[in-house]
């Protein structure tokens, strides 16, 4: 069995009386395309925010590559090799695509003020590295045509790609994608799926939040299903698809689902 890269142990997050996430366990193995699904308001994004350090869990522990990270803040976790995108795209809207991606290289470069002032070797090699690698990533994600376009002026689907490109610049061990297909048309969604599979084949471990069942069932190799903040099912798409709890959560009790009651 492969190495566990991201593990949640009994993670809960309460906002006052609201239990947004309640006692969730999760294991993501290196090389997975891991899906987190659930109806709207199931706590998926909250759970992602806990994993990436934006929230501290009320209870429980998060282990990233075996290290506890519950007390770390987002930038420290990013430095450890976790990159993410956001549900409501957080691009630098007033910067070009190229500039957006360049900032993604922050942790892989070392230039300090001193280096910049004297334009010494560190500065030069960093700049060269950043510019070359940024172009490579932009090509890979298929954004070459938009290289110098202001990110805020791009179409929604393309903005999502820019966000993924920027996250890839971190060369992460795991990539968390928060609803990457939201607002995309079927063709774009399909392209995105192929792209994620390609990335996975290149060795990236990927976790995806989505509420579109079809998309996620054909994409992932393992799934976690949340409802009202609690884990209701886990396993391969086949197992989850036939899980009575999941069917109830998505379609309600009784009638249509499964067919046996109708």
């Amino acid at each position: 069995m492969a190495e566990i890269i991201l593990e949640a142990k009994g993670v809960s997050k309460h906002f006052g009386g609201l239990k947004a996430v309640e006692n969730v366990d999760m294991e993501i193995y290196r090389g997975d395309i891991f899906g987190i699904i659930g109806p709207n308001g199931a706590g998926k994004t909250t759970f992602f925010n806990i994993c990436s350090g934006i929230y501290e869990p009320t209870y429980g522990e998060i282990l990233f590559k075996g290290e506890p990270i519950r007390n770390l803040n987002p930038e420290q976790i990013a430095r450890k090799g976790m990159a993410r995108t956001f549900q409501n795209i957080q691009l630098f809207k007033n910067m070009t695509v190229f500039e957006n991606v360049r900032i993604g290289f922050h942790i892989r470069t070392k230039t300090r003020m001193f280096d910049a002032i004297f334009k010494n070797k560190t500065y030069q090699s960093d700049e060269e590295f950043v510019n070359e690698e940024s172009m490579k990533i932009i090509d890979k994600v298929g954004l070459s045509a938009y290289k110098n376009t202001m990110a805020g002026n791009l179409a929604y689907g393309i903005q999502r790609r820019v966000e993924i490109a920027r996250a890839l610049a971190l060369n992460p061990d795991i990539l968390l994608l928060d609803e990457p297909a939201a607002g995309m048309n079927p063709i774009e969604t399909n392209n995105l799926k192929e792209f994620i599979i390609k990335l996975n084949a290149e060795g990236y471990t990927i976790a995806v939040i989505e509420h579109d069942m079809k998309f996620i069932m054909s994409l992932t190799n393992r799934l976690l299903v949340l409802n009202f903040g609690e884990k209701i099912s886990e396993g391969t798409p086949e197992i989850v698809k036939n899980d009575q709890n999941v069917i109830e959560a998505y379609f309600g009790k009784g009638k249509i689902a499964g067919g046996e009651n109708s």
Binding site: A78, M95, I103, H106
Partner: peptide, 16 residues
């Protein structure tokens, strides 16, 4: 500049 434009995004990219 990344902090000025969007602090949350900057943090998620490892900018301290």
């Amino acid at each position: 500049i990344s902090i000025r434009e969007d602090e949350l995004a900057a943090k998620s990219l490892g900018v301290e």
